[in-house]
């Protein structure tokens, strides 16, 4: 087997480990400590915010403004219309302010 195939399979194995790891560890416990529970419930907001935050801060004015507009729109509209309007927003803002 060539090196590259070896790298791919080892990389695939490592990736699958990260995808099952959290569950494998947690399912060993019958009871989950309240603080762990509180931490786990924070995961969705925490991880998605962590992915988005640099885009809001370091990528330019059009990007920052688009995410601000999306944040406001999301208070009133479901995900799909927000997605479409957000797309229009980034296109428009990049066109007008670069």
């Amino acid at each position: 087997m060539s090196t590259i195939i070896w790298i791919i399979f080892a990389g695939a194995f490592a990736t699958y480990l990260t995808r099952i790891g959290g569950h494998v560890v947690l399912s060993r416990f019958d009871k989950i400590h309240p603080r762990v529970d509180a931490g786990l419930r924070a995961v969705p907001a925490a991880v998605l915010t962590a992915i988005v935050a640099p885009y809001a801060a370091f990528f330019g004015l059009a990007e920052t403004l688009t995410l601000a507009v999306v944040a406001v729109l999301a208070l009133f509209l479901p995900a799909l219309p927000v997605f479409a309007l957000g797309w229009a927003c980034i296109l428009g803002l990049r066109y007008f302010i670069g």
Binding site: V52, L67, V70, L73, A79, G86
Partner: peptide
Amino acid sequence: FLLPVYFMSIVMGFRKRNNWAVIVIASGAA
């Protein structure tokens, strides 16, 4: 830029969950 847009709307959708604002501020700043 479509994925950041989608993720941002989902984050806002969680806003009624416990401790949401504190979590978003801490994660965003860090």
